[in-house]
Nucleic acid binder design. Structure first.
Lengths: 207, 207
DNA sequence: CCATGTGAAGGTATTCACAGCC
DNA sequence: GGCTGTGAATACCTTCACATGG
């Protein structure tokens, strides 16, 4: 194996593999072939092997991959080997759902704070998390929170992103349906749910 | 302009453009240059022009694009020119949030039915939609519902997809964090929220 | 003169096929 | 025999530069 930059598309697939590996580990398996994983996650086996080849030799020909070891390595590459303390901004319908969503924990992502402007929500508890006033964002750095989820209306999104950037947050998952800009030191991923649904009809057979 | 297959990546961007165009139309604008749209949606102007070039000549050199006409054409390509009646399966935290989500309407997507197994939820009303028993899925075809959103736990997802496929649904947006299979006549897009967040640390400067 | 539309160039990701190893 | 790892071939997408047209 030689040095390779890991392609973005591979990075996008790594969490898929990771989930598959962790679920297999839960079932008590030790080894897994690229073919089995392929069946499980729905990515072709050659793609899986190619992807893994970018960052090391983890497989044994004739046997497969050592699940435990590979999972650990993928976590390290994705920088998920440490628990990521995450803040949620915007405790509306979507925000509340995200607070309750169990899937983040799987990846070592832990929502530890929630913020909202709405006075009626501040102080209320959702899933062990007490909603705080927006002003509290300033204290994120001290609380070692470096990631945030933005689930506020479109009009408020940019302002919130600015505040988060100022507070030292370095990664933001934005659910608001708009472009937001941030300093280079902050990575923003925008996830617009409606847009995923919007391209579904295009691919539906017979309109 | 000659015949071109529209690349998948372009299809992925079309809803972004569409939203930008509709918002510009709301502001009373009639024409828009690729440069202005670029600033607005965060996609380079040459990419926008290239994307539009795949399906026709809608621009006027020196002036820009006629917003109204282009928006209509994009809707037609994405097959969003008719209202899409959509069913929601799984009225948990996420499902409830999706029922309340205003963003779908923008694209002519209309959630008109909701299903759940939970007896306590059946009969309750969320946002004008009364939750029905899962068995009601069978009647989707008669009700002219051809799309569905799946927001159930992982374990139930495949079974629900099977039911939906049997009921004549042709497009499914799956929020369950797992691979699901469906007949070729049904297009499935899986959107795993946790996975988007999981690749954020990789791109965060300085870990 | 300004902005579109597009060939051509360049880059990136997917797919294949098979050598090499257990 | 079975499965990995990878160069090479292919397909796809992005980027550029500019001819073309209002």
């Amino acid at each position: 194996m030689r040095y390779h930059k890991i392609p973005d598309e591979t990075v996008r697939r790594l969490p898929i593999y990771l989930r598959g590996l962790m679920l297999s580990a839960d079932q008590g398996l030790e080894h897994l072939s690229s073919k089995s994983l392929a069946d499980y996650v729905g990515v072709p086996s050659w793609q899986i092997r190619k992807d893994f080849s970018y960052f090391g030799d983890f497989g044994t020909p004739g046997v497969g991959y050592r699940i435990e070891r590979l999972a650990k390595e993928i976590k390290k590459i994705l920088r998920l080997h440490v628990i990521r303390r995450t803040a949620l901004v915007g405790v509306g319908d979507l925000g509340t759902a995200l607070l309750a969503y169990p899937g983040f924990r799987t990846f070592g992502l832990d929502i530890v704070a929630a913020f909202d402007v709405d006075r009626r929500k501040i102080g209320r508890k959702f899933n062990e998390i007490t909603v705080e006033d927006l002003a509290g964002i300033e204290g994120l750095k001290k609380r070692q929170i470096s990631m945030a989820i933005v689930a506020v209306p479109r009009e408020a999104a940019q302002e919130i992103v600015d505040k988060l950037a100022a507070a030292g947050v370095r990664g933001i998952l934005n659910f608001a349906p708009c472009k937001v800009t941030a300093p280079k030191r902050v990575k923003v991923i925008t996830l617009d749910i409606a847009m995923e649904l919007a391209r579904l009809p295009y691919y539906m057979p017979s309109g």
